[in-house]
Simulated assay, not measured.
Amino acid sequence: MKRTRIVVAVLGALALAGCSSGGGAEQSAASSPAAEAPAAGGAAGTYAVITHAAAGDKFWDVVKKGAEAAGKQYGASVTYQGDGDAGKQSQLIDQAVSQKVDGIVVSMANPDALKESIGKAVAAKIPVVTINSGAESSKAFGALTHIGQSEDVAGRGAGEQLKTAGVSKLLCVIHEAGNVGLEQRCKGAEQSLGGTVERLQVDVSNLADVTSKVAAKLQSDTSVNGVLALNPAVAVAARDAIKDAGSQAKLATFDLSPDVIAAINAGEVLFAVDQQQYLQGWLPITFLKLYKDNLNTVGGGLPVNTGPGFVTKDNAAQVEKLAGEGTR
């Protein structure tokens, strides 16, 4: 509670400090093979956000929107790029270092693959904030802090709710190979469910195939009575798979989208684990601006948690409008 008050107070003070309305750079969530140098951000600074996002991933569109909104509020230049290939993500970090940006925000789905490039940034005295995945490696790599949710805690929470709903055999659908955070979610669910949890590897960039694979699994093993998606687009594909298979399996998911909210309201999805990813874009730009202006650090060496929360049919209407606007 004390940390929450401190963070809110600091953010409030910064917001009142006369922030201008400069624009953040508009870039696709897909990677750019040769990123241009960020436009001069003046006293407010220039910041590069580099994630492991695949093109068209709605979850990361919300992160991008949060980062750009913070840049606009503070009059800073913010560029956003994403690439699901860890090698290419490392190259994007190296480019940002060569451009001498004032700060780098990076998600670490594959921390070991990014260690060297993040080390170069730290050696160049460019502050780094990690987000979303890789919390366990953030401090060791020299980042100022990590912003996200404990995937293990979130997974256990999901497992507890699925257990209460009567699920005894769960299919956990992993949509990105090598993403340590996704495995932590499945493992957490396994710990609290008290039943059997099987993993199914799919490709988030091919949702038709996701539907086909989940349906095939449900048809071949009718004892599976629960499905846990780890991505909102995968959740929608899994919903269709459950219908196609004629299964009575109960479905839950991580993360929100307008389609997931609609599915919760329709009773097709039990709940969504909400990590409030807009904050994973907005907060790191805010923290880096504070560090640039006043050498402030946040978190005291511990991650700053943005979740988990749970969206169910009881509260879905309250967040539906915000999800439609792309901020939840």
Rank of each mutant, 00 (worst) to 15 (best):
I6C: 01
V8D: 13
V8G: 05
L11S: 10
A13H: 04
A13N: 09
A13G: 14
A13R: 09
L14S: 12
L14C: 07
A17Q: 04
G18K: 02
A30C: 08
S32G: 13
S32L: 13
A34L: 11
A39S: 13
G42A: 11
G45Q: 09
Y47V: 01
T51H: 07
H52K: 07
A54K: 09
G56H: 08
D57N: 12
F59M: 07
W60P: 10
K64T: 13
K65V: 06
G66E: 09
A67D: 05
G71T: 05
K72R: 15
Q73I: 05
G75R: 01
G82S: 09
G82Y: 10
D83K: 00
G87Y: 03
G87R: 03
G87A: 15
Q89K: 06
I93W: 02
A96I: 09
K100L: 03
V101Q: 02
G103H: 04
V105M: 10
V106G: 05
M108Q: 11
N110C: 00
N110Y: 04
K115H: 12
K115C: 07
K115A: 15
E116S: 13
I118K: 01
G119W: 12
K120A: 15
K120W: 09
K120Y: 10
V122S: 06
V122D: 11
I126N: 06
I126H: 04
A135T: 01
F141E: 15
A143H: 06
T145D: 08
T145L: 09
I147D: 03
S150F: 05
E151Y: 06
Q161C: 01
L162K: 11
T164L: 05
G166K: 06
L171M: 14
I174G: 01
E176V: 15
G178D: 08
V180S: 12
G181I: 04
L182F: 13
K187F: 06
A189S: 14
E190C: 02
E190A: 15
S192G: 01
S192T: 14
G195L: 03
E198D: 15
R199F: 10
V204Y: 04
V204L: 14
S212F: 01
A216Y: 03
K217P: 02
K217M: 08
L218C: 04
S220G: 14
S220K: 12
D221W: 03
D221Y: 03
N225M: 08
V227M: 04
V227E: 04
V236E: 06
V236R: 03
V236D: 07
A237I: 05
A238K: 00
D240Q: 12
A241M: 09
A241Q: 12
S247L: 02
Q248N: 15
S257F: 03
S257L: 00
I261Y: 08
A262I: 06
I264L: 10
N265H: 06
L270G: 07
V273G: 02
Q276E: 11
Q276D: 13
Y278T: 03
L279H: 03
W282T: 04
W282R: 05
K289V: 15
D293C: 02
N296Q: 11
P303Y: 01
V304P: 03
G309S: 14
F310A: 10
V311A: 00
V311E: 00
T312S: 09
K313N: 10
D314A: 15
Q318Y: 05
V319C: 07
E320L: 02
K321W: 02
A323M: 08
